[in-house]
């Protein structure tokens, strides 16, 4: 026991926490692409477009904060509200996109 490797310091087979951290990072990058596309679509719509673009940027900041929070502050929590919040952000971008499109056409 004393000469064997400690159970606590044994590297995790499969590096599960690291893979999960990278998955959150990829998700944050995907959200960044969606934010940029939303702003680009909204900006030509004048004042309303600027307001909708601002919503997209604020939502993106909040979503990135949630992703960062999950893999740093709350990394030891088995379950996190970061998951429903990230899903909410995605559904929110879908809704925002529909609003921008409807505003742009009619």
């Amino acid at each position: 026991m004393a000469d064997g490797p400690s159970r606590v310091s044994r590297p995790d087979p499969g590096l599960q926490p690291e893979r999960t951290r990278l998955a959150w990072r990829r998700t944050a990058l995907a959200m960044t692409v969606v934010m940029v596309l939303t702003v680009r679509l909204a900006l030509p719509l004048g004042r309303a477009g600027v307001a909708l673009g601002a919503v997209a940027v604020l939502g993106w900041s909040a979503a990135l904060l949630v992703c960062w929070w999950r893999v740093t502050v709350a990394r030891r929590a088995a379950y996190s509200r970061a998951l429903p919040l990230a899903a909410l952000a995605t559904a929110g971008y879908a809704t925002l996109g529909v609003v921008v499109l409807i505003r742009g056409v009619w």
Binding site: R26, T27, A30, M31, V33, V34, L37, A86, A87, T90, Y93, A94, G97
Partner: peptide, 9 residues
């Protein structure tokens, strides 16, 4: 979630 984000994008 990324699949959903890709569809939105």
């Amino acid at each position: 979630l990324r699949t959903g984000l890709a569809l939105v994008a």
